[in-house]
């Protein structure tokens, strides 16, 4: 008796959850389906059965040179993330294992820089980029994305490092390890999972950053965000090709994102929710 009630409850909950999930996922799903329709099919009214053509993908590449903004997105997101990690790892290490009275204040202050609205510094940043010739340059955008995400990187690493028990580092000191050996043999191997999660989440955030990447680039350094935003004017592409371009822009990061669900919560709440 009790068992059948539980099963019925599970079936009901499953049905409800799947309906909700499919509604939420529907826009993405429909984009995916439309991307493999022909243009006439795409505007012929609602249909979940495409003819299965990959022509749109080819057209997006040949006519609009999709590969270039894609590579820009890869270079900007990976480059800025690695740069941020190089700057942040020593800081987070110091804050986690050698905290002082001011460590907490410094962390909070770093967080506060993240809260500065981008538009507030749009004008000076734009003018500085213009004067230094950094507009539409990969270097300029990489530095920008590095600085924007640095606080999150420091915070995430800090929360991960703090979970490494201090006793283990002390044990290595007792065992005769110097500072360098402590970092190479003990700290780094233990911190790798945390560093990897930070890397992953930060690549996602940098990939999707859509204010500076759109405003500070035009063609040469334009990543996928700017590439897609240029489709907002209706001329040029049609529904199916637009869907193909959209799919290609989000697919890599969607898959990365699925792998980083758990770290996402922690990273985005600055460790406040785990």
């Amino acid at each position: 008796m009790a068992r059948s009630v539980t099963t019925r409850h599970k079936v009901t909950a499953t049905a409800a959850a799947w309906v909700v999930a499919l509604i939420i996922f529907f826009p993405i799903l429909y984009t995916l389906i439309t991307s493999i329709k022909t243009e006439p099919e795409a505007i012929a009214g609602f249909s979940l059965w495409p003819s299965g053509t990959f022509e749109n993908y080819i057209t997006v590449q040949t006519q609009r040179d999709y590969f270039k903004p894609f590579m820009n997105s890869v270079i900007l997101s990976v480059g800025s993330t690695i740069l941020a990690l190089i700057i942040a790892i020593p800081s987070a290490w110091a804050m986690a294992f050698s905290p002082t009275k001011r460590t907490k204040d410094i962390l909070m202050w770093m967080l506060s820089t993240k809260m500065m609205p981008a538009v507030a510094v749009l004008v000076p940043i734009y003018l500085m980029f213009r004067d230094f010739g950094l507009l539409d340059s990969r270097i300029g955008l990489t530095v920008m994305l590095t600085l924007i995400n640095l606080p999150i990187v420091v915070w995430m690493l800090y929360t991960y490092f703090r979970e490494i028990p201090g006793e283990i580092l002390e044990a290595s000191r007792m065992d005769g390890a110097g500072l360098w050996q402590e970092i190479v043999y003990v700290l780094t191997p233990m911190a790798v999972p945390g560093i990897a999660s930070t890397l992953l989440l930060n690549i996602i955030l940098a990939w999707n950053e859509s204010f500076w990447t759109i405003r500070l680039s035009t063609t040469n350094a334009a990543p996928l965000t700017a590439f897609i935003a240029s489709f907002s004017s209706p001329q040029g592409l049609f529904w199916a090709k637009l869907s193909a371009a959209s799919t290609m822009a989000i697919a890599p990061i969607l898959i990365l994102g699925w792998f980083s669900q758990k770290q996402l919560v922690r990273g985005l709440t600055f460790g406040a929710v785990k």
């Binding site: 028990p165 006793e167 283990i168 002390e170 044990a171 290595s172 065992d175 390890a177 043999y185 191997p189």
Partner: peptide
């Protein structure tokens, strides 16, 4: 030499490498 309350073993090393660590250092 010290034995810690939490044992402070290196989780990413085998037992052999744990014991060998001070000698390697």
């Amino acid at each position: 030499a010290m034995v810690f309350q939490s044992y402070a073993l290196y989780p990413h090393m085998s037992v052999r490498k744990n014991i060998a660590f001070p000698l390697k250092m």
